[in-house]
Every structure is written in structure tokens, then in C-alpha cells.
Amino acid sequence: MLEIKGLTKKFGSKTVINDFSMTVADNEIMAIVGPSGAGKTTLLRCITGLERVNAGAFYWNGKQFDPVNPDKNDTIIGVVFQDYQLFPNLTVMGNITLAPTLVKKLGADEVEKTATALLERLGLGGKENLYPYQLSGGQKQRVAIVRALAMNPKILCYDEPTSALDPALRDEVAQIILDLKKQKMTQIVVTHDMDFAKNVADEIQQVEQIQ
């Protein structure tokens, strides 16, 4: 279970998130929705440690953690960015295995085996040696998901997963998210797409613009 308590984030004198609290239960899909500029992405960036919070605390199963300085051996949060941010200079396999081998110091064989299985599961079998520019948008997104999963996170976060996809692919990514839920993955989805949120989420958290 992920708990966020009293999170406040300011940029200069502008408060973007004020005393925000939320709980995400295990194996739950939480959608964070709200209008543009309401701080959805900022909230996600705080959870993923890309922004330092001004106040507030994060707890995983009751134990406090700092997203900005995470424990080396224990990945809590994984992220799929809106524009995926695959590494263009590495193949699909290279993108996925880079962090597990460098950060977790796992053996290359073991990592590749896991990666191949994950790719297979998301319908990317046979794409191991392609470079990102050779993939479609939907495929890139799935590689980004596999890359995050390969670090074995407790929670997988998505920033606007549907914004760059056409309607057919929107359903596809919804299916992937629901499939991952079946495999007991806890997920947080930031989106402005209310229909999509209703489709996938167990719980919807609204964020409002601070006046």
C-alpha cells in the first residue's frame, strides 16, 4: 500500500499542490484526473522523485521512503513517460536490460531471459534488436512499459498514456493496464481522459487547480 501524506509542492511562490493526501491500495489501479494545469503531472513527478516536495511524506507498506533518494536495491516506483523517452541509441533489448544490469547488477543472461518473457507477454516478440525509431508509437509505449517492469517496481506510474495514441491503441493500452493488474501490479495513471480513467481505474482521484 502506498500512502502520501500532506504533500505540498511550490514553484517559487506559486503553490501547485497543497496538503495533498492519497492512499493507493495493493493491486489497485488509481487514476489521477483533472484539468490541464491542475498539477497532475507535477504530482506524478513528486511521486517518481523527479521533483522535490516542499512538505509531505511517502510511505510504502507503512515504511517511509524518499522518492528522490531511493533505496538502491528496492525499486518502489516505475514510470512510463508521456513521450516514452526510450534511449534512441540502444536497441529494444538494450533499453530494457540497461538498468537491471547496471543498477541491480543482475547477470546479463538472467536479465535477458526476463526481458524476452516480458516482451513476449506484451506482444513484442521478435522486436528485441530493433531501434526505437523503427517502432510505432504504441510499440514504443509497450517497450517503455517493459523497461519499467524489468526493474521489478511495486507501483507502475503512467503519465498521460493515451495522449499520443489513436482510439484503437487507447483500448489496447487499457487492456495492458488491466492485464498487469491481474498479475498483481499496483498502478497509478495520470490522465485528462475521463472515459479512459473510468475504463481502467478502481478508484479515481480528482485534482483541482489551486486558486
Binding site: V79, F81, D83, L98
Partner: peptide
């Protein structure tokens, strides 16, 4: 975004510079 992507994967600054 490339730096951020590397950061959430918890690569060090040196690893990010070298590999990416």
C-alpha cells in the same frame, strides 16, 4: 527527458553520461 528517464531507472550521473 532522457536524463529523467535514466534517473527514474536509477542510473547514476556517470552511467547516464556514458551509456546514454
Amino acid at each position: 527527458g532522457q536524463f529523467e528517464s535514466a534517473r527514474v531507472l536509477r542510473l547514476t550521473y556517470g552511467q547516464t553520461i556514458r551509456k546514454i
